Amino acid sequence: MGFKLLSKLLVYLTASIMAIASPLAFSVDSSGEYPTVSEIPVGEVRLYQIADGVWSHIATQSFDGAVYPSNGLIVRDGDELLLIDTAWGAKNTAALLAEIEKQIGLPVTRAVSTHFHDDRVGGVDVLRAAGVATYASPSTRRLAEVEGNEIPTHSLEGLSSSGDAVRFGPVELFYPGAAHSTDNLIVYVPSASVLYGGCAIYELSRTSAGNVADADLAEWPTSIERIQQHYPEAQFVIPGHGLPGGLDLLKHTTNVVKAHTNRSVVE
């Protein structure tokens, strides 16, 4: 069995187990497998329904001669939608809004960016022009300005110390501490036991640490421990890039980060 097929099978099995364990909360999309990078042309966006009122959005972007996937989250909030992270750029984010209108038909009224990198804030200006209120932590807003990236308009308070959590509509926002970046936030959907790890969490097929220019490698494993301790009931975990899975993604990420750190020390 090929690795790609095995990865998709694991996603399907995880979703099936969740649907059985929580039949009222989960209505997993039966329309197909989780979209992969090879299936999404740059400039297009796919939506994948995880649970009743919960979707991931998947886009792709060219970077350094390669094409990478990027995940975000959409959560229903009454007759409105909360968006977590842009679709990595203005063109993708405009396509995301169009796809949401086509498939869901509810307005996106608020959006949260989970850290300051372009795959999370690139497209904020498109959201703002569409009347979406954009939010991020003060740290993310400051770092985005320093980096020359787009800056969300509103500040999220109460997320300055490791372990801080605040309720934001249908989700809980959690600051686990520094990891992929010093400002990275985690998003949890309690009604569906869905954990969105953003770039602080890796997919299972990833074996290298990737972009760690703004990471705190020493603190990252401790931050992941905080996530595990705060959300032990999480059933569906979405990484910032690639295929979702279960809580095993947290341990896998820790292993990859520690291996990278150990290699760096040896070198």
Rank of each mutant, 00 (worst) to 15 (best):
L204V: 13
V42D: 14
G158N: 15
C199K: 00
I104V: 09
L204R: 10
Q235S: 14
L6A: 09
T182F: 13
K91I: 09
Y12E: 06
A15H: 05
R263P: 13
E145W: 11
V166M: 09
S193E: 08
T86P: 03
S22D: 10
E80H: 06
A200Q: 03
L217H: 07
V189Y: 05
A87E: 01
I201M: 14
P138A: 14
L159R: 02
A15D: 14
I20W: 09
S208R: 11
G89M: 01
L217Q: 08
V45A: 10
E233D: 11
T253H: 01
I104M: 06
L97D: 01
V28L: 08
V256A: 07
V11D: 07
S31G: 09
T14P: 13
T134D: 04
G177Y: 00
G32C: 15
S223K: 03
A179H: 02
E150H: 15
L81V: 11
R128I: 14
T182G: 11
G32K: 15
E99N: 05
D183H: 01
K91R: 12
E203P: 13
K258Q: 15
P221T: 12
F236V: 06
S191C: 03
S27I: 06
D164L: 07
A15S: 10
L127A: 03
N149A: 12
S62N: 10
T261P: 15
T109M: 12
I40W: 11
E99T: 06
L204M: 14
D214L: 12
A133C: 13
T261R: 09
A111I: 04
I186F: 06
D79Q: 13
G177T: 00
D29V: 08
G65V: 09
E39H: 13
S62T: 08
D164R: 10
T14A: 11
A209G: 12
G32Q: 05
G245I: 01
E172P: 01
N211I: 14
A21C: 15
L6M: 06
Q235P: 04
V54P: 01
V146W: 14
G32F: 15
K91L: 13
T86M: 03
E99W: 13
L195W: 00
A218G: 12
F168A: 02
I100H: 00
L159F: 11
P232G: 11
D183M: 00
S181A: 08
L97T: 04
G177K: 02
H180E: 00
G240R: 03
V166K: 11
P190I: 05
G197S: 02
P170S: 09
E39R: 08
T207R: 11
V54D: 02
F63Y: 06
V132M: 04
L106T: 11
A136Q: 03
A15G: 08
T254H: 13
V187P: 03
A90I: 11
E225N: 11
Y68V: 09
E267N: 05
Y68T: 09
A98C: 10
D248T: 10
G122A: 11
A111L: 10
A200I: 12
I238F: 14
V212W: 07
A66S: 07
I40S: 11
P41C: 14
L5T: 09
V212Q: 10
A21V: 12
Y188P: 00
G78P: 04
L97P: 02
I151E: 05
L73A: 10
P244H: 08
Y175C: 02
